[in-house]
């Protein structure tokens, strides 16, 4: 049987707020196949960010299991998680979180260098990625000089620098305008077509529409999990059909 890229068993997270236990995630069983693009949706406070943080080992689970490529990961300590992250997981955040002091090029090279790649190899990989994302001329710029969309593209390049098995993204377009969202969407679509496994928390239906599968959380539980079936009537002509679609 095919090992999934990632799966969880009865994953639970309970925060202690002022002595009171507040459950954020209440028993989630999620299976992400290799090459699959899974969108996680749900209203704010439904536990989707907590879930993706736990999947990346950024937050500890209260109980349950997390498996990455058939290996149990929830029992790892902080350092082991860090090493797992640098080898197998790329993370993209809502607020880009580029290291301000470093140039775009350094930001993108950092994970490769961290993973033990030679500076030459890291540079080649960075050049390739920035070229793919159309950012070659920004390589020596400081992150603060870039627009939000450009920053997020750099963050994406950074997350992909080590060719991770899984790309985790937490509201990657949550802080972008529609034009920048479109750019990032196109990129995500492309890397997915190249076989990248993606798990993404989003509130944006445009982003979720790209996914193979949408998982909907409500109050820390999965209430819906399924593929998006094609519409019965595919638009043939052009934008004019939109008006018809909307009736």
């Amino acid at each position: 049987m095919n090992t999934p890229a990632m799966h969880t068993v009865n994953l639970v997270k309970i925060y202690q707020t002022g002595g009171l236990p507040v459950p954020a995630v209440r028993g989630i069983d999620l299976r992400v196949e290799r090459g699959e693009f899974v969108a996680i949706m749900g209203p704010s406070g439904s536990g989707k960010s907590t879930l993706i943080h736990m999947l990346g080992g950024l937050d500890t689970r209260t109980s349950g299991e997390i498996w990455v490529e058939g290996k149990r990961a929830d029992t790892l300590n902080e350092s082991a998680w860090a090493i797992l992250r640098r080898q197998k997981i790329g993370f993209v955040f809502q607020f880009f979180n580029l290291v301000d002091n470093m140039t775009v090029a350094d930001n993108v090279e950092l994970p490769a260098l961290l993973g033990g790649a030679s500076p030459k190899h890291a540079r080649e990989r960075r050049e390739y990625l920035l070229c793919e994302l159309n950012l070659t001329d920004k390589a020596d710029a400081a992150p603060a000089q870039l627009s939000g969309g450009e920053q997020q593209r750099v963050a994406l390049a950074r997350a992909l620098a080590n060719q991770p098995q899984v790309l985790l993204a937490d509201e990657p377009t949550g802080n972008l305008d529609s034009r920048n969202t479109r750019d990032v969407l196109r990129l995500l679509g492309e890397v997915h077509r190249q076989g990248q496994t993606i798990v993404m928390v989003t509130h944006d239906a445009r982003v979720a529409g790209l996914a193979d599968r949408v998982v909907t959380l409500l109050d820390g539980q999965i209430i819906d999990d399924g593929a998006i079936a094609p519409t019965r009537r595919r638009p043939k002509g052009g934008a004019g059909d939109v008006v018809e679609l909307r009736g």
Partner: peptide
């Protein structure tokens, strides 16, 4: 924030 970002990239506490 930068330190948190580094850790999310896979820097260990010791590093």
């Amino acid at each position: 924030r930068d330190i948190a970002t580094l850790k999310s990239l896979g820097f260990t506490r010791r590093q």
